[in-house]
Simulated scan of single mutants.
Amino acid sequence: MTKEIWLNLPVRDVEVSQAFFSAIGFTLKPEQSAPGERACFLVGKTVVMLFAESIFKHVNGGLPMNDTQSTAQMLISFDAESRAEIDELAHKVKQSGGHVFSEPAENQGWMYGFAFADPDGHRWNGLYMDFSKLNT
């Protein structure tokens, strides 16, 4: 039935967001991107569409967008291959204009991760999960 999941997010400046997500290692899909309108990225098996705010407002039926500086609607989580990848990604986020609000750390004895906000304030959570330690 479902082939892909697409996350659609509003952004103030498509080029700034495209540069940020490219710099941290997300895979740009140029064939589905359009300068000033949208940038499309593949994150694992999930498609993330970044729409200019004016276009997003039209696409979502005209509802107002939440203020990402004072509210959080969701936390987008993704997995990593290793603890080193989490550390490297946290460094790239800081260098590329994102805000790490939870530094890389171990959680519950089997997860290692960090959380950040992209330039538009959308919240992301990168995790390395060592399932061999899950029930120990």
Rank of each mutant, 00 (worst) to 15 (best):
E15W: 07
V59N: 04
L134Q: 09
M74S: 15
Q73I: 06
I86V: 12
F51Y: 03
S102Y: 13
M1S: 12
A52H: 12
D130A: 13
G113K: 06
V93K: 05
H58G: 00
W6Y: 13
Q108I: 09
P30V: 04
P30T: 00
S102E: 11
F41R: 09
F26G: 04
D118E: 05
E15F: 11
Y128M: 03
R12I: 04
H58Q: 08
V11P: 08
R38K: 06
K94Y: 01
N8A: 09
F56M: 07
F78A: 11
F78L: 14
Y128N: 06
P64I: 11
H58R: 01
M49V: 11
F51Q: 01
S96E: 05
A80N: 12
V11T: 08
F56Y: 15
E103C: 02
W124I: 11
M65Y: 00
W110F: 13
Y112D: 11
W6F: 14
K94A: 06
T68K: 14
P119L: 10
T27R: 14
D130C: 14
A105M: 15
P64T: 08
H58E: 02
E88C: 09
A105R: 14
Q69D: 01
G121Y: 09
Q69M: 06
H99Q: 13
S102K: 07
E37H: 09
L127T: 05
G97S: 12
W124V: 11
G44D: 00
E53W: 02
I55C: 03
K29G: 00
E85V: 02
K133T: 01
A34H: 10
V14T: 13
